[in-house]
Design a protein around this nucleic acid. Structure first.
Lengths: 220, 220
DNA sequence: GTCTATACTTGGATAGAC
DNA sequence: GTCTATCCAAGTATAGAC
């Protein structure tokens, strides 16, 4: 937008050729992480996919890992926003799990979570990368905690397990399922798990409706 | 000790210098995966840690990934044997979870599961590696299924979720918790999760004792 | 059969062209 | 300010020494 001075530079048709190089590189970095993993995400591989010179990685981001972190930022922001929108419309535990299952399917198809997994695993190989990645994963746990609290708040689950612990477990399970499913391509067990979790949740829902009123939301 | 044919070859003191080069390389590969991850596990890095020439990686294993797979084999065999021994002495769900928590602590300290995670995540970067890794992870799910069935068999859990699904979920959670804990170094949430799971299990234990006799083991 | 020295390829980073 | 041509380090793999 606002591309001043359209100096008819010859480039690939469709590419604007100047300020959005960063954007193109970030997008290519994401795709490369999905397709070739952290170990395969070299400056050359990324630039090749972006259709530009590999030196641009270093000009625009300073280093490969910095570009990779920008990619993680982009994926994280995009997904968390998407999640928030989807979760906003839920009130009950079973609805939450339904939404989670649907989103899990999306993430699996598009490979969004692969980016997280690759960055977490790849963090071991580069000194100083760990904390950077950790800071970008934290919002996921935070979101999971908010979402579970919104749906399970005041239920039986809430009193038997601290919300932060649940959130951590949910994120861990999400990452683990993504890894295993990505590895062997069989998504049936994961979807089955969501299905059963929903049944268990409805059980909890029924149980927590019985005892002393915890109050159905404020005002009643 | 027992250094046959003392042909006074000069080597590092302590190293026997001949047939166990493979063993030393496998051990070094494991340590390198733990410390530097898949992306950092180059032939040079591993050989350096093993204290031998990097060419030996290719002589003994043909390629780096082959050595890495041998490392995964070794870790997997070692751990699964250890798990079996520990689980053999368990009969109740709460005991199983106690054992699982203890073993999780061990694995975290020693970095055993890091090897799995790195290999799973690294599989994306090398064509054909995925199925090889998948074949080596399958026994873990198998073991988890056997263990949960031994402890939860005939309980309420068994009838609401298929054992294979539970096993998959347990392995996924285990891998995910390892990743997150390894990333930020905070093992408290994971241990808390085991603790709460134990409470829930004892609840299930109590519930499943009430209804129509599913039969305490065969016979009776 | 074991291992080392060397060939060749790919990757990270920058000096300098535009 | 943006990008390309080039440099050097690190990686895989093998030919050949022992």
């Amino acid at each position: 937008m606002a591309k001043s001075g359209a100096s008819s530079r010859l480039r690939q048709p469709g590419a604007e050729g100047s300020t959005d190089t960063r954007r193109v590189l970030v997008e290519a970095a994401i795709e490369t992480l999905k397709a070739d993993g952290f170990a395969g995400a070299s400056a050359r591989a990324i630039a090749g996919r972006a259709g530009c010179n590999q030196g641009l990685v270093f000009y625009h981001f300073g280093s490969v890992v910095n570009l990779l972190l920008a990619a993680l930022d982009a994926v994280s922001a995009d997904r968390l926003e998407h999640y928030s929108a989807a979760v906003d419309r839920v009130t009950t535990p079973t609805e939450l799990i339904d939404v989670a299952a649907a989103i899990f399917g999306e993430d699996l198809d598009a490979g969004h979570v692969t980016v997280l997994v690759e960055m977490i695993a790849g963090a071991s190989s580069t000194p100083g990368l760990g904390p950077e990645v950790a800071a970008r994963i934290a919002p996921w746990t935070q979101f999971a905690q908010a979402a579970t609290q919104a749906a399970f708040g005041g239920s039986a689950l809430d009193s038997v397990i601290p919300p932060s612990t649940v959130a951590r477990g949910v994120v861990a399970l999400y990452l683990g399922l993504e890894m295993l499913t990505h590895l062997d391509g069989d998504r049936a067990p994961a979807l089955e798990l969501f299905d059963r979790a929903k049944e268990l949740a409805s059980l909890f829902q029924a149980l927590s409706a019985v005892p002393s009123a915890a109050g159905p939301k404020e005002g009643s």
